[in-house]
Each structure stands twice: as C-alpha cells, then as structure tokens.
C-alpha cells in the first residue's frame, strides 16, 4: 500500500470527480463522501492507487464521485471484485462501498468470506436500515415491526447487526461511526484505511426520504451523549450528558450500565476499553448493546493483526518460484511424461 506523499500536496477537492453528485438533498451520503475525501487527503494517498468498488444501491454510486479508479459492480458482490483485484494488485488501496441491503442481504456470503480471509481491503457499510434506491422496502437491518411499502403490517424478521456479522467472521478491524459526526467519521475512516487486513466500518447513515430519523437518538445533540458511548483504547467506558455513566461487567459476565457515585461505583470499577484483545468476546459484547436498552458504542471495537490473505497467496507463489525456478513456457508444456516420435518411425 503506497502511502508516500506526492510532490504537490493533494487537497480534499482533488479527490472529487467532475460528476454531479445525485443523492437526494439532505442524504447522509454527502457527509460520508466529504469525510472520505478528507481522510484520503490527510493520508495523501495518490489518487491513481486508490480504487473504490461498490455494489448496487444509493451508497454504491459513491465511486462515480471520486477522482480515483472505481467500479460500480453488481448487487452484493463488491467484496468478491475487491478480493480479485487486491490479490493481483497489492500496490492498490481498495475500498468497498456497500449498504445494509447490498452487504447483508444479497451479498452476505461475499461479505463474510472477504472478512474471514482477511483480504487487505477496507469495507464501509452505509447503514440506513432501509432500501432507498428501490423506494422504501425494509432491509435486513430494519427493526422488527418496521412498516414499509412491502411490510404494511410491520416486518416480522429479526434484523442482522453488521458488527456482529463482522466479528463473527473474525474481522481484525471493526469500527462504527455516524454520518454527521464529521470529525469522528474522518478519523475512523483514516484508521480503517491504515489497518492492514480487512477493516470493517459500519456508518449510521440517515435516509431522509424513506427512513428519516432512524438514527435521531444518535445524532440529536440534546440526547446523543446519553445514547452513544465513544470507544477509546485504554480508556474507561464512560458516557452520558454529565459523563457520569459507565459500563462494567457484572458477575453474570454481562455488561451493565452504572452511574459513578451511586451504589459505591467509582471510575476504577468501569470497564477499560481494549481494542487489541486477541479474544473478540468483549468486542462482541459491546457490539451487542442496542439502543434503547444500552448506549451504542462508536469508535474502534477491535483492532488486531491477522494473517493477510492476499499477502499469503503471493508468498506461496514466491516460494514456489524460489523452489522451482526457471518456469518458462517450454518447461510448462513439457512437464510430466513425454515421448519422442522420430521421423524414421
């Protein structure tokens, strides 16, 4: 992955393409686009070494708006395209842009396999809990009971939680951010991009047309501090508008919300976040906290190193070549048992 700065510094604007952005006015995707450009500019990634690969859906129009290489592929399959590309081109920085329907419904299989292989790519899942491009059907992350055009009596499916899927696939880097938390989002995107191996980021994104306010509890300034908990490696898990609440593990090995100063609880009782634990159990518990019962964590849940698929594939080829050098075309064609028929035969 080339992170080397170029001679002339690239600006945020340089990463944008000439195409008009055609998301609905007010869509959360605008903010994500802006923060992505900011993160790339911050890293000074050469534009030609960056590739955005998307599936189908509103979010998947993303590549058209970046002046990088891009592929707007087919529904749900972006991780598979990215795997092929990254395997043959280690020099590229490959991003997958996907949505809740794209990644978790039609593309669930590719998502889990890209993650378990640990392909060196960054997957950004824009979660708006609705099908937007097809005009408002419930999605695999829609809450149970969701009334939409296709579920006038309310959906009866239990939703999937993207981070639990990622952790279940043993993702090495798992994070969450929110479309309008611009600074947090830009920092999270950069951290994900710098991670070696699959990095997975869920972004709470508002669809103001078909599912407006889905994340209001996480974005409204008045209430968000009571509903979100910011994860910082090495820091105790505190939150709340007065920053007096926290998380601790109780004797049933469950997370519980406590208030500092009540029932003899002090800061030293709180769980200290460790994103580098090899065991994913704590990250799983954190990802399994759901609003409104719990504050939902944002930030980096897990950040560990695992063997990288594309590196290992190329390493096998390198070793095989070293062990048996001189593999030219003639030796290839003549491998195995051969015999010669001479003219006198």
């Amino acid at each position: 992955m080339a992170l080397a700065p170029q001679d002339s510094k690239l600006t945020v604007k340089d990463y944008g393409s000439s195409q008009d952005v055609r998301w609905c006015p007010g869509c959360g995707d605008y903010s994500i686009l802006a923060q992505m450009k900011k993160a790339l500019a911050n890293m000074q990634l050469p534009k030609e070494n960056v590739v955005f690969i998307s599936g189908i859906g509103c979010s998947s129009r993303f590549p058209y708006y970046m002046d990088t290489y891009g592929m707007h592929s087919i529904h749900g399959r972006a991780p598979a395209f990215a795997t092929g590309l990254k395997t043959v081109r280690p020099d590229l920085h490959v991003f997958v842009i996907t949505g809740d329907g794209d990644a978790l419904s039609i593309g669930g299989n590719h998502l889990i396999h890209a993650i378990r292989r640990n392909v060196n790519i960054t997957i950004l899942l824009f979660n708006n809990r609705i099908y937007g491009l097809t005009k408002g059907q419930y999605s695999p992350t829609s809450e149970c009971g969701k009334k939409t055009k296709s579920t006038p009596f309310g959906s009866v499916d239990n939703p999937l939680h993207p981070l639990l899927v990622a952790l279940g696939s043993e993702a090495g880097f798992v994070a969450r951010s929110v479309d309008v938390h611009t600074k947090h989002l830009a920092e999270t995107l950069e951290a994900a991009a710098r991670h070696q191996g699959t990095s997975f980021v869920e972004i709470y994104q508002n669809c103001n047309i078909f599912n407006d306010g889905a994340w209001e509890w996480a974005t409204d300034r008045k209430i968000k501090s009571d509903n979100l908990i910011e994860l910082e490696h090495g820091q105790p898990l505190r939150f709340g508008s007065n920053n007096d609440k926290g998380l601790r593990v109780n004797s049933n090995l469950e997370l519980e919300v406590v208030t500092i100063g009540e029932n003899g609880v002090s800061e030293s009782d709180l769980l200290v976040h460790n994103s580098q634990r090899k065991d994913p159990a704590l990250a799983y518990m954190l990802a399994n906290m759901h609003h409104p019962e719990f504050p939902e964590p944002v930030g980096i849940f897990r950040q560990v190193q695992r063997p990288i698929y594309d590196d290992d594939v190329r390493e096998q080829v390198r070793k095989a070549r070293e062990a048996r050098p001189g593999g030219d075309l003639k030796s290839l064609l003549h491998a195995g048992e051969t015999w010669t028929v001479s003219a006198s035969n």
Partner: peptide, 22 residues
Amino acid sequence: MTFQAEDEIAAICAALGAAFGG
C-alpha cells in the same frame, strides 16, 4: 494464481476484479 471462491458468483466477480487490475 488461483482463488477458490465462496461460490460461483464470487469466482467470476473476483476474475473481473483481477481483469480490471490487469
């Protein structure tokens, strides 16, 4: 290089990704 994909669709998609990469 070979890639044993998770399914038939992933195999053609990975191939197209590699083709995009040259």
